[in-house]
Amino acid sequence: MTVAAGIGYALVALGPSLSLFLALISKKPFLILTLLSSTLVWLMSLIVMSALSRAFLPLKTTVWWPYTILILTSVGFQEALRILFWKVYKKLEDILDAFADRVSKPRLFMTDKMQIALAGGLGHGVAHAVFFCLGLLTPAFGPATYYVEKCPKMPFFLVSAIIALAFATIHTFSMVIAFSGYEEGNKVDQCFAPVVHFIAGMLTLINLAFGGCTISIPLLYCVAIVTLVHCGKMAWRRLIENRSREGNLSNSQ
């Protein structure tokens, strides 16, 4: 029974990512590599953050300001990494295009680029879910469960799985939005990812208050849904534009 619960928690956190992986990523080796490297980048950022926080921030205290600083710096750091990731990706894209020319295959399609962004985002999201939720899940497979004192309504594992799902969604799709923002030079989209990430991080601060998780989780899901909808709209718009451009192209020929 507890095994079922543990698997259930894991699936709550990672189920959507898993299906995304199986449906899309796993068919294209390059996307798997992108996903792995982005997961590794995220892991390294987490390690750096933990080293910094261990050096400078006393987290044992019950005051909330160190946590605020922590979240601010972490989000800032990860957003900086996202820009770095974009720069690396840009170089890679040139290489890929050159390669495609050589093997006389078509260059990267717009959907390919979005898939790469998706794989990169999924890497971040999966890394988040893995390290913040799955990594702590081991005790959930044993007998008994665990409640955090600030959130007595639900077992800790369930709460963290639910939060991890929201974050995985946010990370995954905000990467797509950010990449397309960089590519099109769209300032709004460029700022969207950091802002959403920051808001989501700040929302989890509510959990420090007693019973805060009942408030923060719905808010977090609102943010996730906003991200999802925004990403959907953006992808739809670009697809339509792309199609009409291709249509024009073929008409003119």
Binding site: M49, K60, L70, L136, V148, S160, T204, N207
Partner: peptide
């Protein structure tokens, strides 16, 4: 670090 933050649900 992770255990510290995530047991606070951060």
């Amino acid at each position: 670090f992770v255990v510290g933050t995530s047991t606070n649900l951060l």
